[in-house]
Design a protein around this nucleic acid. Structure first.
Lengths: 197, 197
DNA sequence: GTCTATATTGCGATAGAC
DNA sequence: GTCTATCGCAATATAGAC
């Protein structure tokens, strides 16, 4: 059974928007990549912006539902942090375009940024500082750990690696092919770094 | 004394390229922001791409010379890492557009990416894994620390914070105004995280 | 729902006067 | 070195046939 036009467009537009940004991808090449007439972008999505929003929405949904699962975990703080690290890195491996799309939004925020992105993350990311605070309360993490900043540090390690990998691969060609090893190092360094001794 | 046209264009183009990307900024708005005739972009830089390369070059130079200083430090591994953290965060505070420009290059690499960026970083960033390895040799860092991946983790924490700050500020409006505190947390977590116990 | 054809706008670049 | 005027082109969007 054939994919319908909407689906084909979203799928084909994803890598183009991810690699070239919103402004850099033209409706002509978007349509061509989807093997679809360019007029259909306006018909189905009301224009290029609508297609872009649909692409963003599709990919964001995956991330948000995964984060929601993590936030509902009842494991202890250390285990929940391990689960967070694993979940996020799995998402990036599975959907390598998501992070580039989000990056594009951070550089050049569209209306989607304020309307959807900020509110979505607001609801879901607060569990991370809460987890760190819980670790402190339980006496497992050191008292001088700042829940919010420590969370940002963790989010940084888990995400930035996937951002700079294309650059890193050119700088260290043979050495950086093991995502698993990086993830292990992150968990190792971070959990030891926040722990009460 | 007046700034000359080249200077005015580079200065005015920096935030525009940083916020809108190469494709998103038009030569008309670039010229207008610099209060200069748009034909002068072609005259002085050979076109929009030339201006973009000049902007990138100007900002990259600062970063590279700062990194070079760090790499020449003779302090012990822990101190050199502290110096690296401080240096990079100072650069981002001083030149808030640099990271956005580099981000744009990562998303949509121009010719500049391969020709200049990769080779520049190649020469300068190897001192970081070397520093971590030195810490291991001295018995100060734990043996299961992987110099390269541990370096990527550090680079991530130091840079990504400045990337997501616009988003984080909207999610946690009042809590994220102290860069110093974040930097302190990073040094605290990282150095404790890699240390031999 | 999909196509062709086209309207309209804005783009980057340059010729030529000063 | 800077200006005006404009060329040629590619952009998005849409009207109207099927």
């Amino acid at each position: 059974m054939d994919k319908d036009t909407r689906e084909k467009l979203i799928e084909a537009a994803t890598p183009l928007f991810a690699w070239k940004g919103f402004a850099g991808a033209s409706i002509r090449e978007l349509a061509k990549a989807a093997d679809v007439n360019s007029a259909l972008i306006s018909y189905h999505f009301g224009g290029k912006e609508g297609l872009y929003a649909a692409v963003l929405h599709t990919h964001l949904t995956h991330l948000l539902s995964a984060l929601e699962q993590v936030s509902r975990s009842t494991a202890d703080p250390e285990e929940r942090i391990r689960l967070f690290i694993k979940t996020v890195s799995d998402i990036h491996k599975e959907k390598p375009f998501l992070l580039r799309l989000l990056q594009g939004e951070l550089i050049n925020p569209s209306v989607y940024f304020e309307k959807v992105l900020v509110t979505s993350f607001k609801k879901l990311i607060t569990f991370l500082p809460a987890t760190v605070a819980e670790g402190k309360d339980l006496g497992k993490f050191a008292p001088d750990i700042h829940p919010l900043y420590a969370s940002v540090a963790l989010v940084s390690m888990v995400n930035f690696y996937f951002i700079i990998r294309p650059l890193a691969e050119q700088i260290f060609p043979q050495d950086l092919n093991r995502d698993e090893e990086y993830i292990k190092q992150v968990a190792r360094i971070y959990l030891k770094g926040v722990k009460e001794e």
